[in-house]
């Protein structure tokens, strides 16, 4: 008997009482002002969220916020400051030394400041390898909580997807919080 069959056979033999699927809905907290709650939550996670003003373009904002950046990688349209089109690179490793990555997220979650990004670039390492990560979302896209977030994922087709909430962080040395463990040291969410 294969291990697969052995395991399944053991499971069937040892399962006695069966529990029902809990179909009841949780009465989850909805936020009246999702955008301000989202911005607060991003700040709490160590990142920053800004609403793009009409007087400024995304390009201007990135240049203004990262004046020192030499390597800016983005696949987004109309971002003149981008120095690298990541999809044109053959190997993911070539994205090392990226100062700023500018990527598109699909929606934000107000309760925890997370942004859902279904892989929309060739090398997913772009979301993790840059020193600073800029995620652009539509300000109307913010949902209240993770229940709503996962309802939005139903039926979505992605090879890889990630909720990102703030920069990479660790507290593994004496519980001292440090930003930039392996991924981005800074995380800026732009609501446009």
């Amino acid at each position: 008997m294969s291990s697969r069959e052995t395991i399944l056979e053991h499971i069937r033999r040892n399962t006695s009482q069966k529990y029902e699927y809990p179909a009841w809905e949780i009465q989850a907290t909805d936020y009246a002002d999702k955008i301000s709650r989202f911005c607060d939550a991003v700040r709490l996670s160590g990142g920053e969220a800004v609403v793009l003003q009409e007087t400024e373009s995304l390009d201007d904002l990135v240049r203004r916020r990262f004046p020192e950046a030499r390597h800016i990688a983005s696949q987004m349209e109309g971002l003149a400051c981008a120095t690298t089109r990541p999809d044109e690179l053959a190997a993911a490793q070539e994205l090392d030394h990226t100062d700023v990555a500018v990527v598109e997220g699909q929606f934000g979650v107000a309760e925890n400041g997370a942004v859902w990004i279904p892989q929309n670039v060739r090398h997913k390492v772009l979301y993790f390898i840059a020193e600073a990560l800029v995620i652009v979302i539509d300000r109307e896209s913010v949902v209240s909580h993770m229940h709503e977030a996962y309802r939005r994922l139903a039926g979505q087709d992605y090879a890889f997807g990630v909720f990102i909430s703030g920069p990479s962080k660790t507290a593994d040395i004496e519980q001292a919080l440090v930003m930039g463990a392996h991924g981005a040291r800074n995380c800026l969410v732009v609501l446009r």
Binding site: G113, A114, V162, S165
Partner: peptide
């Protein structure tokens, strides 16, 4: 924390 920095699928 409200959620981990990365929830990868």
């Amino acid at each position: 924390q409200p959620v981990t920095s990365y929830t990868s699928h």
